[in-house]
């Protein structure tokens, strides 16, 4: 006899709880340059429904982000880009986009490695906790915290360097005027 891990009557309600993250997944895909963020979000939800027993009931967001990330990689491979096969190298594939609402921030982000950018953006833009972000990347929370700490330092330095350069340029401009 087949045993249902999730009773059919409660499956819809449980999936409703997961489905409420549809917008967050679409935004995650959009910020990483997906050509079809809504499609990625819908496919992520379809997989979540199919594999409902495998989705953590208490906090499905890391699972959803990880699935969306894999779909983004597949989208890029279909797009004809050369995709690395090593899963560790793939960590950097779903790097955040280069566009933010602040040109200085965009430029500073682009000075970072893809892994550093991803760590920062998962926290600042996708509103994941460090533990959730670590789970979505498939790494340990401690490792993520170290990565985040160093990414913050590098990002801070990049911002600082750009601000100083801009200030110097402004002073030079004032002197020459």
């Amino acid at each position: 006899m087949t045993t249902h891990r999730t009773p059919p009557a409660s499956a819809d309600a449980r999936f409703r709880h997961i489905f409420c993250h549809l917008d967050a997944i679409a935004r995650y895909a959009a910020r990483r340059g997906s050509r079809d963020p809504e499609g990625i979000a819908a496919e992520t939800m379809t997989i979540a429904w199919r594999k409902l027993p495998a989705v953590p009931a208490d906090d499905p967001r890391p699972w959803l982000f990880m699935t969306a990330r894999h779909l983004l990689m597949a989208e890029r491979r279909r797009g004809g880009r050369q995709a690395p096969l090593d899963p560790e190298v793939l960590e950097g594939v779903a790097a955040p986009p280069v566009e933010s609402g602040d040109p200085e921030v965009t430029a500073a982000l682009m000075e970072l490695s893809p892994n550093d950018r991803e760590a920062l953006v998962l926290i600042a833009w996708d509103d994941l906790t460090p533990a959730q972000a670590a789970a979505s990347l498939g790494i340990r929370p401690v490792a993520f915290r170290v990565r985040l700490l160093r990414a913050r330092r590098r990002f801070g330095r990049a911002l600082e360097a750009r601000a100083s350069a801009a200030e110097r340029a402004r002073l030079l401009e004032m002197e020459s005027a």
Binding site: F19, R31, A41, A42, T46, W49, D102, I123, A124, F155
Partner: peptide
């Protein structure tokens, strides 16, 4: 730096998909 990064979060707009129809199609 995190606060500044949060403020620079790009606006991704609203989803155009019909959520209820998608939910029904999936389940």
């Amino acid at each position: 730096e995190i606060t500044r990064l949060r403020r620079a979060r790009p606006d991704c707009g609203e989803l155009s998909v019909d959520r209820e129809a998608l939910f029904a199609a999936i389940i």
